[in-house]
């Protein structure tokens, strides 16, 4: 079966065609990052406008690249949350109309669940149970997946998503937007020796908090600038990134032990961070745990993961109603 996936929850407009939930026929992504760069973050109304402009040409191109005629599509899947309401509504409305026009089922997909399925696309042999750590500009989640469609969210961020903290630190260090790759690059030149936060106030839980860490960097930079002293940008980047990764490591490996899984999957844009990959790879090898992460174009937001996830959802639960509402704060249950 051919599945059409549509993703518009944040600042990537994406359309993909996936066969049988596992084989990518096309996976097109139109990033809006250049439209939001000067604002230092995603502007929701602007994002929604860009989605509507981009979506139809992208849909046409995705079918053409897949070599698929519209009447061959058997299922239409679209993200219905979590995300920015204006953007979600564009993809969701288009997808429902397509399902109506083609007389095929429609299925709404949880974006966070979608990120997990990026790993199933990239690694066909992968099977649950597994633990998935999703880190991006929009989310930080530690999820135990018992089987397809059955999840337990062990931990999530109490404030900023990891990627959001990267963006803000990049901004105060004058590195531009988006911040993740810039901080990653600069950190390689620095020493992670500045203690930014003394204690882990969420110790013992699986939840995350990055706002204190981010504020510590911002305050330190402002203090140094006021005194006219040089800002050790590379050391700050290395220290900040090191502490983010340490927190992610501590929660994740504790969960690996507690849930006795030997499969760990990483997902989300921040999973492309070089230090994160290196430290998780090393620790996984030491513990004999199988570590998976998708290639970059499946790490960041994309519609192939939505199509794959939608396929499994539909097989398990059937189609979603055509009046399914967008759910900006949708949770994974």
């Amino acid at each position: 079966m051919l599945i059409l996936g549509v993703e518009t929850s944040c600042d990537e407009t994406a359309v993909a065609v996936v066969e049988d939930g596992c084989k990518i026929r096309s996976n097109l992504i139109m990033s809006q990052v250049d439209r939001h760069r000067r604002f230092g973050g995603v502007v929701p109304e602007l994002a929604a406008r860009c989605h509507l402009e981009a979506i139809t040409p992208l849909l046409e191109a995705a079918l053409r690249e897949a070599g698929v005629r519209p009447q061959e599509i058997g299922l239409v899947a679209a993200t219905y949350g979590p995300g920015l309401i204006g953007g979600l509504l564009v993809g969701l409305s288009l997808a429902k109309a397509l399902s109506l026009a083609w007389n095929v089922p429609f299925v709404g997909v949880n974006h966070v669940e979608g990120h997990i399925y990026a790993n199933f696309l990239a690694h066909p042999g992968l099977t649950p149970p597994l633990l998935c750590l999703t880190v991006s500009g929009g989310h930080t989640n530690l999820i135990y997946m018992a089987e397809h469609g059955v999840y337990q969210v062990l931990g999530e961020t109490r404030d900023d998503a990891a990627g959001e903290a990267f963006d803000k630190v990049a901004r105060v260090l004058g590195l531009g937007y988006p911040g993740g790759p810039a901080v990653d690059r600069l950190a390689r030149e620095g020493k992670p020796e500045i203690t930014l936060v003394q204690q882990d106030r969420l110790a013992g839980t699986y939840d995350f908090s990055f706002s204190g860490l981010k504020t510590a960097v911002v305050n330190l930079v402002h203090r140094l600038e006021q005194k006219g002293e040089p800002v050790p940008a590379a050391d700050l980047a290395a220290s900040f990134q090191g502490q983010v990764v340490s927190t992610l490591m501590e929660r994740t490996w504790r969960a690996v032990e507690a849930y006795q899984v030997n499969t760990l999957a990483l997902s989300g844009g921040v999973a492309a961070n070089s230090e994160l990959r290196a430290r998780f790879t090393e620790e996984a090898a030491r513990r004999g745990v199988n570590l998976y992460y998708p290639p970059l174009d499946l790490c960041t937001d994309n519609a192939a993961m939505v199509a794959a996830c939608g396929y499994f959802r539909w097989r398990k639960e059937g189609p979603s109603p055509l009046d399914l509402a967008a759910a900006p704060r949708l949770r994974l249950t």
């Binding site: 406008r49 204006g86 564009v90 288009l94 429902k96 109309a97 397509l98 109506l100």
Partner: peptide, 20 residues
Amino acid sequence: SYTGVRVGLAIAKGLAFGLN
């Protein structure tokens, strides 16, 4: 309403594309 108009257009575009 910005959102309202977008929803109408997204539905119309889905229908028009889907039905050629």
